[in-house]
Design a protein around this nucleic acid. Structure first.
Lengths: 198, 198
DNA sequence: GGGAAGGTTCACAGATCAGTATACGCGAGG
DNA sequence: CCTCGCGTATACTGATCTGTGAACCTTCCC
């Protein structure tokens, strides 16, 4: 009956394994396409345990997205913690985080994919996915403001689009990855918005 | 048993209605979440007819994506047919096409969404979706080349990411739409790659 | 007249879906 | 000792999924 996400950091050992399996399967094969029976089998846990811990598939999906969101925010925080960055370099730091992130996440943005499968705003996972974009937009906005860039809101919007686009575009025949190519574009946009620029 | 896409332009009246209903439902609610029974009911046609015409849900999905791809290409062609455009304006013309397109397509990029739901490369719809991105990448590349811009391949890759990103990002609290904001970013990138630029 | 094409009606298969019921095992902490 | 938290095992419900079988009704065209 429960429909809200659990705290991914306080889980019983069985629930942990369920969430790990669900994360992999949902991301790799899609949320709707993966059934609870498969998740239970893959995690070596009974379906009964899955429901005792999470209450419903909805809640498991929401927890999966929440856990992924936390991982991503920690990953970005790591890139921002680098010392000796200029304010402008800080504004494009998430793109450097994106490069390493995409090495292990080749199936696009999990939140965009989730929104594609969960159009219902009432679904608890929908809000988690929407919040993730909002958070990133605000992060870009504050970074742009701290770097004294023009039109921080618009610039942040543009950087967010570049970021989501890099995740969406499957790397083409080009030798360089989308993350690297897009990081260059972000630098160009940031320089163009610099206070000293023409 | 058929698994390949039909030609969306040569359809019987019943098949036409099926495809129209499927297009709306697949885009709005997701491919896996929509069953053939719902499509048949929504289009006022028997499930038997649906299978007589399309052979399988797979094939219907592939046809849906193919039809959408043709609509989009025609839409872009319209924007490129505008007279009096400079080569640099032509390079960003798809972004002007995007603005009007997004007025009626508020659920993101149908092809990205489809790839999220159809990870299997063997699925006939997968290839249609992948081809769409490839086509757009090549279009941007040739437009950049014709405008004599530096690194046409990389620039096209960046523009493609901007394009997909604009579709993926649900318009935030900002007053301007993603399409407009991203069109500005595209202009900045194009100007920065102009032969006369610093 | 006689096909052939497009569509309808309705029943039905076989699989898979989310979720539940009941009963049991086991270890830790009071 | 005894309960409670965690997990196991198995069977089951009812709904929904894709896909099929068989018979029948038009309309158009040769």
């Amino acid at each position: 009956m429960k429909a809200t996400a659990l705290d991914p950091d306080t889980l019983t050992p069985g629930a942990r394994r369920v969430l790990d399996s669900a994360s992999e399967l949902f991301y790799e094969r899609g949320i709707t396409a993966v059934g609870v029976d498969l998740i239970a089998q893959h995690s070596g846990v009974t379906k009964r345990t899955l429901y005792n811990r999470f209450g419903s598939k909805e809640a498991l999906v929401a927890t999966y997205l929440l856990a992924r969101d936390r991982r991503w925010r920690a990953h970005v925080a790591g890139a921002l913690a680098t010392s000796g960055l200029t304010p402008q370099e800080r504004a494009t730091a998430p793109f450097r985080a994106l490069r390493t992130w995409m090495l292990d996440n080749r199936r696009g943005c999990a939140f965009i994919n989730a929104l594609a499968e969960l159009p219902d705003p009432e679904h608890p996972g929908h809000r988690v996915a929407a919040d993730q974009q909002q958070w990133l937009l605000e992060l870009f906005t504050s970074l742009a403001t701290e770097a004294d860039l023009r039109d921080p809101g618009d610039l942040a919007h543009q950087l967010l689009c570049l970021y989501e686009g890099a995740l969406a575009v499957q790397t083409p025949a080009t030798t360089r990855s989308s993350a690297e190519t897009v990081a260059d574009a972000a630098s160009v946009l940031v320089r163009a918005a610099a206070p000293s620029a023409p």
